[in-house]
């Protein structure tokens, strides 16, 4: 039997591994790029342009051809072709060098937005994908869902009104609930409000918000706001954000100071020998996880205390309705309590 030089075989092995890695690595691999390119036909481009125009029209910004080529990551040639096709099909029209949506274009754009937000809702309720992935996955899925499929999806989810970031989902007939609230960075010191929306774009900022563990629907009170930083209290914790980051959080100001519930805190901060009453579950606790916690008795009004601390800190066992149930820190932080 012939012997094979070990160095040669190792070299062959590693070059094969590297080759496979470059071909198949997630999102940047050649295989995925090819797949994406193959798919990103005119339909995707058109839909992306429509969406961009829609979002800018909502915030009253005008877009020129240059803006489009800047903001969309497509080959310029393809973009120009798509634009002329869209004008031809009466989806958009030109007005003072910038593009506007026609009635038809607006309808189409709303359908894409609806598909996108419903898919995010689906991912948050029925799958285990991480928050960070929802947006990107919905960006791809929105082009694949037909109107019929979108409606079925909506039905499956019980026709939800808001997506998991707090954005309104357009209805079948194209109605959109108006956006409310102001940016967190614009609030003055002492203002009390409730977080109603966390923007998921751009990704860098969104990841920072997620890392801070700021929860949607939580009540906040601003204690400091200047050019350097925005500081606020929420659910018994203190948060410090850069103004740019705070700018991506929308808050509904609560005029009535009396509703302020300063002594609400998270179950994760309960200490041994303290007793607390559960106020409710945070909106951030979703899907199967939420139902499980409710089944286990983590419902409003239940009395809870720490039963056992873990030698490795996480999880913690809580005594609730006569039984010791262990929860991880990220679950306990989504259960709101008030100390007795």
């Amino acid at each position: 039997m012939s012997t094979i030089n070990p160095v040669v075989s190792l070299l062959v092995f590693f070059s094969l591994t590297i080759l496979l890695y470059y071909v198949f690595r997630p999102t940047k691999g050649i295989y995925f790029l090819l797949k994406k390119n193959y798919k990103s036909k005119t339909k995707t481009i058109i839909e992306d342009i429509l969406k961009l125009l829609y979002h800018n029209q909502v915030s009253n910004k005008n877009l020129t051809t240059n803006d489009l080529t800047d903001k969309l990551n497509y080959n310029n040639q393809l973009l120009i072709e798509s634009i002329s096709k869209m004008i031809e099909n009466e989806l958009i029209y030109m007005e003072n060098d910038s593009f506007r949506l026609t009635e038809l274009g607006n309808e189409y754009a709303l359908q894409i937005v609806r598909a996108h937000r419903l898919w995010e809702k689906f991912l948050s309720e029925k799958t285990g994908f991480d928050k960070k992935e929802w947006h990107e996955r919905a960006e791809r899925k929105e082009h694949e869902l037909s109107v019929d499929e979108t409606n079925k999806l909506s039905e499956l989810l019980g026709d939800p009104k808001y997506d998991p970031h707090g954005d309104p989902i357009p209805t079948k007939t194209g109605k959109v609930a108006p956006k409310k609230g102001v940016s967190l960075s614009e609030l003055s010191v002492g203002a009390v409000g409730r977080i109603i929306h966390i923007e998921d774009e751009p990704e860098i900022i969104y990841k920072q918000i997620l890392a801070e563990k700021i929860h949607l629907d939580s009540q906040i009170r601003v204690v400091e706001n200047n050019r350097m930083r925005v500081v606020f209290h929420s659910e018994g914790e203190k948060f410090v954000l850069a103004p740019v980051v705070a700018g991506n959080i929308t808050v509904l100001v609560l005029e009535n100071q009396a509703v302020s519930e300063e002594n609400i805190m998270r179950l994760s901060s309960l200490q041994e020998n303290e007793v607390a009453k559960i106020i409710g579950l945070s909106k951030e606790c979703r899907g199967e996880n939420r139902r499980r916690l409710l089944d286990l008795g983590f419902v409003r009004g239940a009395i809870v205390e720490v039963d056992l601390r873990n030698p490795l800190k996480d999880p913690t066992a809580f005594l609730i309705k006569g039984t010791s149930i262990a929860l991880r820190e990220n679950q306990a932080s989504k259960i709101l309590i008030k100390k007795e």
Binding site: T127, D130, A317
Partner: peptide, 15 residues
Amino acid sequence: KTVLKGEVSTFNLEL
């Protein structure tokens, strides 16, 4: 991190 990341994940442990 790969093939299973979409599966629903919950945690509870009764003692």
